[in-house]
Simulated assay, not measured.
Amino acid sequence: MGDPMKDRAGQQVLRVGLVGAGQISGAYLKTLPQLGNLQVTAIADLDAERAAATADAVPGARATTPERLYSAEDVDLVLNLTIPAAHAEVAHAAIAAGKHVYGEKPLAATTAEAREVLAAADRAGVRLGCAPDTVLGTGVQTARASLDAGDIGAPIAATAFMVTPGHERWHPAPEFYYRPGGGPLLDMGPYYLTALVTLLGPVRRVVGMSSASRPTRTIGSGPRAGTEFPVEVATHVTGVLEHSGGALSTLVMSFDIWAGELPRIEVYGTAGSLSVPDPNGFDGAVRLFTGAAENWTPVPVRGGYPDAARGYGVSDLARALTTGGAHRASGELAYHVLDVMESLLAAAESGSSVAVTSSCERPAAVPAGARPEEH
């Protein structure tokens, strides 16, 4: 890698090359230029025209091919926004070129592939980060601060629910959600499990059950509306997670439920309960119930990056490179979450509990009002 760029104040700036200019890239490219420790310098896609059109909208960025981006002197980190099946391949190519890597979830299609990516990054001495970074916002971080302050006493249990009748109702090409590697757990589970690990620590054992309510689904919108396709994965997964500290989390991930008024996440302790907002977002209201108050009361913002959006995990990684500390949306955390999901599906298949062989550090809390380029 070449020497990192400097801004006018002499601050180190991490130069980012983006691979995969699909739909999610727009969310990142809306955020990254606003973060003072990042600069997007290159954009690559298998579709050269799409890469060029995307780069034209980003000041200072140029369009290139993935191969040239990996070897570019003005790229310090590769932002991997390709499809999940390509996550490991792109990460290996970037690591081999000596680049840091931050990718969309999942870290890889399987834990076996993810272990190889982790090992390659470790050998190369580069940083590996992975979405979701929604847990760095004020929603989950305020709940984390409340837990750490002992507001509900010692955590005993938690619940996490994500229910929908299925993405085929709105997505014009939803088949991949119902093929191996898809399903409600692998699609949405990373948001909920990353939040649970951030709040309660890593998971050491799981039990679970799963089902598929019907063998086919029908596309409900777009030019292929009315097309029927097969379901190849479980569409309803429920399980219990035993955290390293002893708390038990009940998880429900479903593409089979029309509607529900279940809370997104709640945490229950010896002295009260905590309502946590949707972990698919960065903010939201946190509410507290204790025996002393005997009603739900709002918790003021007590932690998290304010106004965070997709890409703050990249900026947090850049901060860690400057300070020498750990970055929060780490490859190790993403690997553990993937391992928990695979273990839960294995438990549902076998009908017995499954030990989660991996672990990770509970990420450090984000102080209230912090900016990733300032701490």
Rank of each mutant, 00 (worst) to 15 (best):
G2L: 06
D3L: 11
K6D: 11
R8F: 10
V13E: 09
R15E: 12
G17C: 13
V19T: 03
G26H: 11
Y28P: 10
T31F: 08
L32G: 08
P33Y: 13
L35N: 05
L38Q: 07
Q39T: 10
V40W: 07
I43E: 07
I43T: 04
A44W: 03
A48R: 10
A48S: 15
A51Q: 04
A52H: 02
A55W: 00
P66S: 08
E67G: 02
R68T: 06
Y70I: 14
S71R: 14
D74I: 03
L77W: 01
L77Q: 05
L79T: 05
H87C: 05
A93K: 07
A94L: 10
A97F: 11
A97N: 08
G98F: 10
G98C: 13
K99V: 11
K99C: 14
V101K: 00
G103S: 14
G103H: 00
E104S: 12
P106A: 12
A109C: 01
V117H: 08
V117I: 13
D122S: 15
D122T: 14
V126F: 08
C130E: 04
L136N: 02
G137Q: 01
T138G: 02
G139I: 01
V140A: 05
V140N: 00
V140E: 00
A143R: 01
A149S: 15
G150L: 09
D151M: 15
I152G: 03
I156C: 06
A160H: 00
A160I: 02
M162Q: 11
P165A: 14
G166P: 08
E168Y: 00
P172V: 07
Y177K: 05
Y177H: 13
R179I: 02
P180M: 08
G181M: 07
P184W: 02
L185E: 05
Y192T: 05
A195F: 06
T198Y: 05
L199D: 12
L200W: 07
V203H: 05
V206F: 05
S211T: 14
R214G: 14
A225R: 09
G226M: 07
F229H: 05
V231L: 03
T235I: 03
H236W: 05
L241Q: 01
H243L: 11
H243G: 06
S244V: 15
V252K: 04
S254L: 06
I257T: 15
W258M: 14
W258L: 15
A259Y: 10
G260W: 04
G260F: 06
L262A: 14
R264A: 15
I265T: 02
G269W: 08
A271R: 13
S275K: 08
P279I: 03
F282Y: 14
D283H: 03
D283C: 01
V286N: 01
L288T: 09
L288F: 11
E294I: 12
N295H: 13
W296V: 11
T297M: 13
P298N: 07
P298I: 11
Y305C: 13
D307F: 08
S315F: 10
L317G: 06
R328C: 11
E332A: 14
E332T: 12
Y335F: 15
H336M: 12
H336L: 12
D339Q: 08
S343L: 09
L344V: 12
L345F: 06
L345H: 05
A348G: 15
G351P: 04
V356G: 02
T357H: 06
R362L: 11
R362T: 15
V366W: 00
E374Y: 00
